[in-house]
Design a protein around this nucleic acid. Sequence first.
DNA 1: AAAACGGGGGC
DNA 2: GCCCCAGTTTT
Length: 216
Amino acid sequence: MKNTKKNIIKTLEAMSSIENLTMLAELKEKHTPFQMLIATILSARAKDEVTLPVSKELFKKYGTPKTLANADSRIVKNIIKKIGFYNTKTKAIIATANKIQDDFHGHVPETLDQLMSLPGVGRKVANCVLVYAFGKNAIPVDTHVHRISNRLGWAKTKTPDQTERRLEAIIPRKYWPLVNETLVKYGKTICAPISPFCSKCTVAVSCPRIGVIKSR
DNA sequence: AAAACGGGGGC
DNA sequence: GCCCCAGTTTT
């Protein structure tokens, strides 16, 4: 099957049959943009089942830029310890809270460049905040999106950055926010990194199986 | 381009 | 006990 825009949209719709929301889509319901930002920073290379409860626990004490900016790093470190990379992440989220206070009047910025200027925020986290916290058009590319895009032949790329450019070129803007949500859900369940459940994949017919890229 | 950061969950 | 996990920063 050729990678026309119509076919890609059809494939995305076919993959969206999975009913569970991603962690970020779930968090969106009851959390502020600042809390979405912090939870997204914390989620890097960590599992949702750990990140979710830890984030909620953190927000009980430090749920605003003001409170987190002035937090005791030892207490924060202890709360988020289970996530891993906790030294780095503690420093990052406190510094980010301070920068939001000092440079952005206490509000999470809404542009990609400004978000990426925050400590601990790279392109993926910034794009996630744009999509999940502010409802803007962007395509956050994590390992799931990168892996599946390459398996399906939508992209033949080495880096997530290249994948993002490619997807933005071949997918109409109005579908951009769906790409991350759909592919992450699909990647967690069917199109797994190591042993994908191809027998249960509803879009296998569209999958050229151009090699199986490494999990990381 | 490669290394460092990391505890917890799954098997 | 070993491997993996919604990346980012530093070397």
